[in-house]
Design a protein around this nucleic acid. Structure first.
Length: 500
RNA sequence: GAGGGCGUAGCUCAGCCUGGUAGAGCAACGGCUUUUUAAGCCGUGGGCCGAGGGUUCGAAUCCCUCCGCCCUCACCA
């Protein structure tokens, strides 16, 4: 620890000891409040208090001190909680000698409770005129600077609590993410879906193709995989008669990090028996545009450019987009290969379908700015999806895009157990299955053989939805604790102050 | 994994190109101050300049290696 941090720490410890000597617990106790800070503000506004006057409205409020402006025998402190900030005015003549002695020992970062009346100062600032101050908790380390806040991304992500305290817009963003998920849950429940939880540790990681994380269960002495998708378990529930199910939870993929990828990310997946792709479109449009309206006030900006999320979303054709936006002939492997090469893709060993996917994500995806559905991707890429009745080479599938990112993916689900087995076997021959030994999920196939009703299925990437709705350009701004390389243990030890 | 950028006080940053031994604001400490809004005024302390090595009489500054973060690419149904 640097001498400077040591100095802060020792000074604050000494104040903490002084408080204890005065009979004040430096790590206080329950404090009943009359409302949060924003609630007190609203009350004050509603009472239309004149400048430089006090009302008779009493409040009890608590928060962390984020600013102190002290005079000899009076001080203004700004309190902050989850809802916002409010100023409190502490005067020696109102708090008494003992009370004001505590004020003298306050530091930025301490938690306090105040009881007093709401009013406005002569500068018209809503203020709690304190009758008493209750010390709640001492902060032994200093907070980041009050004006510029905290901007170093390393510290912001590693010590997110500092980011949340110092940067109100960050706190607000995560509150909104929580509201987003609550709203999504409510909207699905209104449609008769029930929320379920399926295994995150799976013996065979299915439902997608991605490299899994491997873990080990000691008692059974078996390797397990962190799920890459809940799909195969949710479908088992359709077999079991839970006709409308959804799950909101983490998926894990052992792949690279990027502004759009975190190895653990949050997905919403739902399955609706007796439905199909059209139902999934309706749900996606309605839920996403509804949430955006609720949280973003209808106006959503990403990277300074507006993104249109209001329904209806245009239905675009996968192959037409390839021809139109990428200028390739989707039927020609050579045309696809040369386009992929031009985009800097290493095309060795890629088959026609993989090339198509590369061309799509390099040439078409970045330009899909306003929300839209891309329909009819080739069946080869989607072993869990039904083929189109009119064109068996294409999947009855859509992917929803907005702000140049894939936001959702939906199928009319394949419920033919024999066809499903054939597709799995085909896939097991491919290279992507090597990681998990190419094992077929026989238990899932058995479930299908018992009969899965025709169904539509939908997955929405919640982190990306949050990014778009909240205008965050990197996933790290919507994930509280994004994955970072752990610090050296030596450094971590040095952070811990020695006791005495 | 490759390329580029960044790393200086608790925080936000200057200094680096053109080497001469470390600066500002906020925060902290002492003093004055009972209506401030990044409060003010006077004074004080605080840095192995990410780590290690090299060049040099002399390195925050130039060179090399390593570590961490960010960006782009690659990996990634």
């Amino acid at each position: 620890m640097s001498p400077n941090v040591d100095q802060f720490f020792e000074e604050r410890r000494s104040k903490s000891r002084k408080l204890a000597e005065m009979g004040v617990d430096p790590c206080g106790a329950k404090f009943v409040t009359s409302s949060d800070l924003a609630g007190a503000r609203e009350k004050a506004e509603a009472a239309s208090i004149a400048p430089a006057s006090e009302s008779e409205i009493s409040v009890r409020l608590a928060g962390r001190i984020v600013a102190v402006r002290a005079f000899g025998k009076a001080a203004f402190v700004v309190l902050r909680d989850r809802s916002g900030d409010i100023q409190a005015y502490l005067r020696a003549d109102r708090l008494g000698e003992a009370g004001y002695a505590v004020v003298k020992l306050l530091d930025l970062g301490d938690f306090v409770g105040v009881e007093g009346t709401l009013g406005r100062t002569k500068t018209n600032e809503i203020t709690v005129f304190a009758k008493s101050l209750t010390f709640l908790t001492k902060a032994l380390r200093p907070l980041p600077e009050k004006f510029h806040g905290l901007s170093d991304t390393d510290t912001r992500f590693r010590q997110r609590y500092l980011d949340l305290v110092a940067n109100p817009e960050v706190r607000e963003r995560f509150v909104k993410r929580s509201r987003l998920i609550a709203s999504l849950r409510r909207r699905l429940e209104e449609r008769g879906f029930i929320e379920v939880e399926t295994p995150m540790m799976q013996a065979i990681p299915g439902g997608a193709t991605a490299r899994p994380f491997i873990t080990h269960h000691n008692a059974l002495d078996i390797d397990l995989y962190m799920r890459i998708s809940p799909e195969l378990y949710l479908k088992r529930l359709l077999v079991g008669g839970l006709d409308r199910v959804f799950e909101i939870g983490r998926n894990f993929r052992n792949e690279g990090l990027s502004p759009r990828h975190n190895p653990e990310f949050t997905m919403m997946e739902l399955y609706q028996a007796y439905g199909n792709l059209d139902d999934m479109m309706e749900i996606t449009e309605s839920v996403v545009s509804g949430i955006a309206g609720e949280l973003g006030g209808g106006e959503v900006q990403f990277g300074g450019k507006p993104v249109k999320l209001a329904s209806p979303w245009p239905r675009l054709d996968y192959l037409s987009l390839l021809a139109g936006k990428a200028g390739v002939d989707p039927a020609s492997e050579e045309s696809l290969r040369s386009a992929a090469k031009k985009a800097g893709v290493d095309t060795d060993g890629l088959d026609k379908w993989a090339l198509m996917d590369e061309v799509f994500s390099n040439y078409v995806e970045p330009g899909l700015w306003d929300a839209c559905f891309v329909c009819g991707a080739p069946i080869e890429l989607t072993p869990l999806c039904k083929a189109r009745p009119d064109d068996p080479t294409r999947a009855e599938r859509f992917e929803a895009y907005a702000a140049g990112m894939e936001l959702a993916n939906a199928y009319t689900e394949l419920n033919d157990p024999l066809e499903q087995r054939r597709r799995f076997e085909e896939q097991a021959g491919g290279s992507s299955a090597a990681e998990t030994g190419g094992k077929l999920d026989e238990d899932f196939l058995t479930a299908l053989e018992h009969g899965m009703p025709p169904a539509g299925g939908l997955g929405i990437g919640i982190d990306r939805l949050a990014m778009i709705v909240l205008g965050a350009e990197t996933i790290r701004e919507v994930v509280l604790f994004p994955l970072l390389r752990p610090r050296e243990t030596g450094a971590a030890t040095a952070e811990t102050p020695r006791s005495n």
